[in-house]
C-alpha cells in the first residue's frame, strides 16, 4: 500500500494547509487517515471502472457491425470466470470493510481525558456550553487538545458536521449523542447542520475557531462572566446572539420567521387568536418560556421552547436588550 502513497498525494494535490481537489484542509486528527482510506477506495474503484470502460469501448469498436457483420461463436458461460470475478473484488471489499471498521472505532472512542463541550441544537441555531459555564454561538476549541462534544437537540433531529475535521453525528431529541476530535490546525472552519430540520436548515451554520490553548483559556474565562461585567443591554446583545435568536428575529425591522424586535417594546401586538397584548417585560418572558401560547398574528407557532435553556440573569439582560432595540 505504501507504494501507492505518491499517487494519493497526486489526488490531494495541495494537501494539508490549503485543501485540494477533493477535500478541505485536514484540520483534525481524523482527517489524514480518512483521506488515505478515501483514496484507497478511489484507486480500487478507478481501476475496476477503467477496466470495464476500456473493455466495453474496445469491444464496441472491434465488434461494431461495420467491422463484424456477424457474431462469432464463443462460449456464453464459464463458471470459473464467474468465480474469479466474484472472488477478486471480494478481497478488495473485505479490506475496505476492515479499514472502515478500524477508523470508525477510532472515531467512536473518545479519549477518557477529553475536554468536554456541550452542544445544543435547535431550529435554526447552535449554542455551545463549556465546563466553566461559558456559552457561545460559535464553537471555540483549543489546539492540540482532544475535544468531546456532547450534543442534544431541543426540537427535531439535527446533525453536527465539520467538514475540515471529517466528523459528523446526528443529534436526536430525547437523548445525548457525542463525537470527538483533536484540532491540529489553527484557524476558522465551517460548522454545518447536516440533517434536514426545516425552513432555515441551510443557514443553521456557524464557525469553529481553533485557538492556541492560552488564547482559548483567556476567551473561555471572559465568556463565563460577561453578564456581570458589561452593561445590561450590551450583555443582552451577546445573549441574543448566543441563544440563536437572530436566526428568526431581526433587529432592523425585516420579517424573517418571527416578528422583528425593532421598536416593538411597549407597543400593542395583535395575536393569532384575535386578542391583543402589550409587549412588556412579562410578555417577552412568557414568549421565551412558553413561546406558542401567545403568537403574534401572521406568524406560525414554530418557536422552540426555551424553558430550562436560559437562566434568570440571561433573561433579564436579554429583555433589556430587546427594550433597547429602537429606531
Amino acid at each position: 500500500m505504501t507504494l501507492l502513497l505518491p499517487v494519493f498525494a497526486a489526488f490531494q494535490s495541495q494537501s494539508g494547509q490549503e485543501g485540494g481537489f477533493w477535500f478541505p484542509v485536514q484540520a483534525s486528527n481524523h482527517a489524514d487517515r480518512y483521506d488515505w482510506v478515501f483514496f484507497y477506495i478511489l484507486i480500487v474503484c478507478g481501476i475496476f471502472l477503467l477496466g470495464i470502460t476500456v473493455s466495453a469501448t474496445w469491444f464496441l469498436f472491434k465488434y461494431h457491425r461495420s467491422r463484424a457483420p456477424e457474431p462469432e461463436p464463443s462460449p456464453s458461460h464459464s463458471t470459473a470466470l464467474e468465480i474469479v470475478w466474484s472472488v477478486i473484488p471480494a478481497i478488495f471489499l473485505a479490506y475496505m470493510f476492515w479499514l472502515g471498521f478500524v477508523g470508525f472505532m477510532e472515531q467512536r472512542t473518545p479519549p477518557a481525558d477529553a475536554y468536554e463541550i456541550h452542544a445544543t441544537a435547535r431550529k435554526w441555531s447552535w449554542s455551545f456550553t463549556y465546563p466553566n459555564g461559558a456559552e457561545s454561538d460559535e464553537l471555540h476549541v483549543p489546539l492540540g487538545v482532544p475535544v468531546k462534544m456532547i450534543m442534544s437537540s431541543q426540537d427535531v433531529i439535527h446533525a453536527l458536521f465539520i467538514p475540515a475535521f471529517r466528523v459528523k453525528q446526528d443529534i436526536v431529541p430525547g437523548r445525548y449523542s457525542d463525537l470527538w476530535f483533536t484540532p491540529i490546525m489553527e484557524g476558522e472552519f465551517e460548522l454545518y447542520c447536516a440533517e434536514y430540520c426545516g425552513k432555515d436548515h441551510s443557514t443553521m451554520q456557524t464557525s469553529v475557531f481553533v485557538e492556541p490553548e492560552g488564547v482559548f483559556n483567556a476567551w473561555v474565562e471572559e465568556a463565563a462572566d460577561f453578564i456581570s461585567k458589561l452593561p445590561p443591554a450590551e450583555a443582552g446583545e451577546r445573549v441574543f446572539k448566543m441563544k440563536g435568536c437572530a436566526a428568526c428575529h431581526s433587529i432592523d425591522g425585516s420579517v424573517v420567521t418571527g416578528p422583528s424586535f425593532k421598536g416593538q417594546f411597549g407597543t400593542t401586538r395583535k395575536l393569532a387568536d384575535g386578542s391583543s397584548v402589550t409587549m412588556d417585560e412579562n410578555y417577552i418572558r412568557k414568549s421565551i418560556l412558553e413561546p406558542n401560547a401567545q403568537v403574534v398574528a401572521g406568524f406560525d407557532p414554530v418557536m422552540t421552547n426555551f424553558q430550562g435553556q436560559i437562566n434568570d440573569d440571561q433573561l433579564r439582560v436579554l429583555i433589556e436588550y430587546i427594550k433597547s432595540v429602537k429606531e
Binding site: 478515501f38 475496505m96 470493510f97 479499514l99 472502515g100 477508523g103
Partner: peptide
Amino acid sequence: WLTTLEQDIHLHD
C-alpha cells in the same frame, strides 16, 4: 464509500 463505516461519517447527508 458510503458503506465503509468511517467514510460514511464525512459523506453522509
